Simulated scan of single mutants.
Amino acid sequence: MDLGIFIPIGNNGWMMSETAPQYMPSFELNKTTAQLAEEAGFEFLLSMVKLRGFGGSTEFWDYNLESFTLMSALAAATNDIQLFASVALPTLPPAMVARMATTIDDVSDGRFGINIVTGWNQIEYSQQGLWPGDWYYEKRYDYGSEYVQVMQDLWSTGQSDFKGEYFEMDDCRMLPTPKEQRIPLVCAGQSDRGMEFCANYGDYQFVIGDDDMSGVREASANLQKHAEASGRKVGVYALYFVIGRDTDEEAEQTWQHYKDGADLDAIAFMTGQAGLDTSGATAETITNLKSAFNLNIGAITGSWQTCADKLDALGEIPGVDGVMCVFDDYPRATKEMGENIMPLMKSRPEK
């Protein structure tokens, strides 16, 4: 089973909590995390795209680096690990993103991929005058399908004459092409339509983890149903907080301490934005967050052995190819996972 890290491109990582570690994003923090991850044997890193935060007492995600430029720098600072940057489709034309990806593919010697973010958080785009209109809620995956087809044309042949409802290419040229004439794509849409989109175009689908793993099991089965219809192989990467300590009790106490500090104002702002999605998909997926603190992501907590066992259990779910980990203190937790958890796992690939 593959292991990856959702690197801290935004302030405070993914913990909407006043009692969790508070820090700003920086290249040095992400470079340190990336190099520790590569040394430990992680398979991939992913950086999100976030253009406006959710405020609150923690100023959650009010501070963010830019995904593509960060990953290009990390490509030059690493040797083997796979790197995924995220693109928010309303902000950049597909031909430009295709060229950006090809450049980082060259920098990384073929280790680069893209996370496709169709975009649901209206204020991120309206603040720049880039929100397409409320029609986009219902049509964003149709838009995304054309977007990806343009990029795939350019990556495979260096030329596109694609004609669609949203994009029209007129002998669009892009040379050189990527090393393999393709760039791997990952997606994270949790709705049924989002799963269908990934089954048609993606290589991996990120699924938000849940504590008893039933949601991951259900989502993986749904993705495989769509993948069978599309005739493609698509794997699941489950997203989980990992809190490992010497004992189960110590890990649970740490996790509870973070939950007790939930930044409710930031959570309320985020859920309010989700409610603007007139298609209902985002609001349906992001549930009960006013009493949560972590975007409803499940947690793998416990001793080093307990964490290893839980990760192995995820690897036994049909269709699950890996886990993308979220940490509290990234450099420390990355090192500890490599030293204390990964050697105990039975599902890790042989190196």
Rank of each mutant, 00 (worst) to 15 (best):
G194R: 08
W135H: 14
K31R: 13
W61N: 01
V320W: 04
L311E: 01
A98T: 05
T254C: 13
E66V: 07
A77L: 08
A266S: 13
N79W: 09
P8A: 09
Q190V: 10
A34Q: 03
P349W: 01
A313E: 08
P176K: 09
E66G: 06
M270I: 11
A266C: 09
I104F: 02
N79I: 07
K335A: 15
T102I: 08
Y125D: 12
Q256C: 08
F206N: 02
F6W: 12
Q190I: 10
L295R: 10
L154C: 04
Q224K: 12
L92W: 10
F42R: 02
L51W: 12
T287W: 15
G235W: 13
M169W: 07
A199L: 13
K346D: 14
T78C: 03
R140W: 04
T177W: 04
E165F: 04
F269P: 05
Q205F: 12
L89D: 07
S57Y: 15
I81S: 00
D212I: 03
V148I: 12
K346V: 14
F54E: 11
F112E: 02
L223T: 12
P25N: 02
Y23H: 08
F54G: 01
P184R: 09
L295P: 00
V236F: 05
I114A: 05
Q273E: 15
P8V: 09
D106F: 06
C172Q: 10
L83E: 00
I9D: 02
R348Y: 06
L311F: 03
Q152G: 06
M213G: 03
V148G: 01
A20W: 03
V150I: 08
T271N: 06
E228P: 05
L51K: 05
T19C: 10
T103A: 12
S145D: 13
M195A: 15
G231F: 10
T282P: 06
A95S: 11
D260R: 12
G10F: 09
A313Y: 02
K225Y: 14
L83Y: 01
Y166V: 11
D321I: 07
A188L: 05
Y258M: 10
F42V: 00
A313H: 03
A308Q: 07
I104P: 00
Q122R: 15
A229S: 14
G56I: 01
G53L: 02
A333K: 04
L70M: 11
D153Q: 08
Y330H: 02
S191T: 13
I208N: 09
G231V: 11
G275F: 07
E249I: 13
G244E: 10
D263L: 00
E228M: 13
D277T: 10
G202H: 03
M96V: 15
G110T: 03
D212N: 11
K139R: 14
A199F: 11
F269M: 15
M345D: 07
A34G: 03
Y237N: 08
E39T: 12
V242E: 06
D142V: 09
I123E: 14
P132T: 08
M345W: 10
P90H: 03
C172N: 11
Y136K: 05
K290G: 08
F68A: 00
A266D: 06
T103R: 07
Q35Y: 02
G315C: 00
M48D: 10
M342V: 12
D246G: 06
W131T: 04
Q253P: 11
T334A: 05
G209N: 02
Y330P: 01
T271C: 05
D142Y: 06
L175G: 13
G302E: 01
